[in-house]
């Protein structure tokens, strides 16, 4: 509900705000798109990727717009040189963890959020070289979902959508840091898990880490991808 007198400022523009709304949501209401990577509006924000950071007057550090509730009188800036540099740095770091940005040349079937975002912020693939987080590939023989850890940025969109939206609780994070992987609750195959094969993890994944196995096979057969 919009309450009388509940207003805030985004990019110099005064706007009406609603109780409980995040900065991201309030901005979207007035047509300001803040870039996101680890966020899916249907589930609780995790604020792990920090691509959506914005400046809030009176705060020293930039704040993740996906998780921060907007407050009356708040003055927010979603776009300036500092933020662009910051976002570019984050994307480049993320890419570096995917093997120096090799994934930018991947010929995925659909739009890859990470790929699109890299173009948007002008991130250079291979700008940073670092350890890659690629864990072992999970040998999961289910016929539906192909998981490629080399492309995973550990944003946990898949696990949150599975748990909070589908409420199947089939997958979750396992391990920490570079050794972390996404695994089924009991570490068995998806076929033996509570997975309903709704495919929503594939659809929310912002990279090519989760794919429809048959689609990839069909496209390979046709010579459309390598």
């Amino acid at each position: 509900m919009t309450q009388q007198g509940q207003r805030a400022t985004i990019n110099g523009r005064e706007i009406d705000i609603s109780e409980g709304e995040t900065i991201l949501e309030a901005a979207a209401m007035v047509g300001v798109a803040v870039p996101i990577l680890c966020h899916d509006e249907r589930v609780t924000p995790s604020a792990t990727c920090r691509v959506c950071v914005v400046k809030v007057e009176g705060r020293r550090l930039p704040i993740a717009a996906c998780a921060q509730k907007i407050e009356p009188g708040m003055t927010v800036v979603t776009e300036d040189d500092d933020l662009s540099t910051w976002r570019k740095g984050i994307i480049e770091l993320t890419l570096s963890e995917l093997g120096g940005g090799a994934c930018l040349s991947c010929e995925m079937h659909g739009p890859c959020d990470l790929h699109a975002l890299a173009a948007e912020v002008g991130a250079e693939p291979g700008a940073l070289r670092g350890a890659t987080s690629a864990g072992p590939k999970l040998d999961d023989s289910n016929p539906f979902i192909l998981r490629d850890y080399d492309q995973c940025i550990f944003c946990y969109r898949c696990t949150r959508v599975c748990g909070e939206h589908e409420q199947a609780h089939a997958i979750g994070p396992a391990g920490r840091g570079f050794a972390s992987i996404i695994a089924t609750s009991f570490d068995g195959g998806l076929m033996d898990s509570p997975c309903t094969f709704c495919g929503q993890c594939i659809q929310t994944c912002p990279t090519g880490a989760l794919l429809d196995r048959r689609m990839i096979e069909l496209l390979k057969d046709e010579g459309a991808i390598r």
Partner: peptide, 13 residues
């Protein structure tokens, strides 16, 4: 109606 059921689950949440 698996996707409609998501609304029911959401309501419960």
């Amino acid at each position: 109606h698996p996707v409609l059921a998501l609304r029911v689950k959401k309501a419960v949440s």
